[in-house]
């Protein structure tokens, strides 16, 4: 079982390494969205400091959603998905493997880069570390929840837009607690409570989302 998990993660990472533009495009999307806000709002540091948590989190939400399209679509088109569904292993193991690889490729770089971008918003070190931590806990949950939407819309015309309709409302709790953690740190209250809620959401998503996603994949692959 773990062997298969490892094989899938390794395969998807290898594929991503051979086609690096996919990783970079999600990352640059995140960077550009974040850099656009000061241009639209104005460079006043006190305002930027205040809105930074929301902007970072909404940008992370959008970047994660955009990346979802590639999660299963290629495997669906070339027939690999059928082979995965015919594997003698539980499908949710495969789903977990794919989501982990997907997060390592599209989520983690964004988490790592976020403190650097935070400097643009004049955030203090304490706030930067809260931002990093909240994204580290939140973005995997986004990938997990999003995988349900990606699986449901597989092979549907206009699937890309549809995914956003299905997935964004489900992202709201992550957004609230993620941005809340950073905000609470900014205001000096400490983001502990929010971070533990994020952790709880992540654990819940880890248990439930792969099951829903595998059921959805079976339906979509028919």
């Amino acid at each position: 079982m773990f062997e298969l998990f490892r094989v899938i993660v390794q395969r998807d990472l290898l594929l991503a390494m051979r086609r690096r533009s996919d990783i970079l495009s999600t990352l640059f999307f995140f960077v550009i969205v974040i850099s656009l806000f000061p241009l639209g709002i104005g460079p006043e540091p006190s305002i930027l400091r205040e809105i930074a948590p929301g902007i970072f989190w909404v940008a992370a939400l959008l970047a994660s959603m955009l990346a979802l399209e590639r999660l299963f679509a290629v495997d669906y088109v070339d027939g690999s998905l059928e082979q995965m569904l015919l594997s003698p292993q539980p499908v949710f193991i495969l789903v977990m493997g794919k989501v982990l690889a997907h997060w390592l490729v599209t989520g983690l770089p964004l988490v790592i880069l976020s403190p650097l971008l935070g400097i643009q918003y004049d955030l203090s070190n304490e706030v930067l570390s809260a931002l990093l931590l909240s994204l580290l806990l939140g973005t995997p949950a986004l990938s997990l929840i999003g995988s349900i939407g990606a699986a449901l819309t597989l092979g549907i015309r206009g699937g890309g837009v549809l995914v956003s309709l299905l997935v964004l409302p489900l992202y709201i709790p992550v957004l609230i607690f993620g941005a809340g953690a950073v905000e609470a740190t900014v205001s000096g209250l400490g983001g502990q409570g929010h971070l533990s809620m994020l952790g709880a959401i992540l654990i819940g998503a880890l248990v439930l989302a792969p099951l829903a996603t595998s059921a959805a994949l079976r339906i979509s692959a028919e």
Partner: peptide
């Protein structure tokens, strides 16, 4: 497929609604 896919979506929504409601209240 539409029946079953939308059924799954409803279930996922049902699990999420309490979480969403709670988080919005907290917020």
């Amino acid at each position: 497929r539409a029946d079953r896919a939308s059924g799954i979506l409803l279930l996922v929504g049902a699990v999420n609604i309490p979480i969403i409601h709670y988080s919005v209240k907290w917020w």
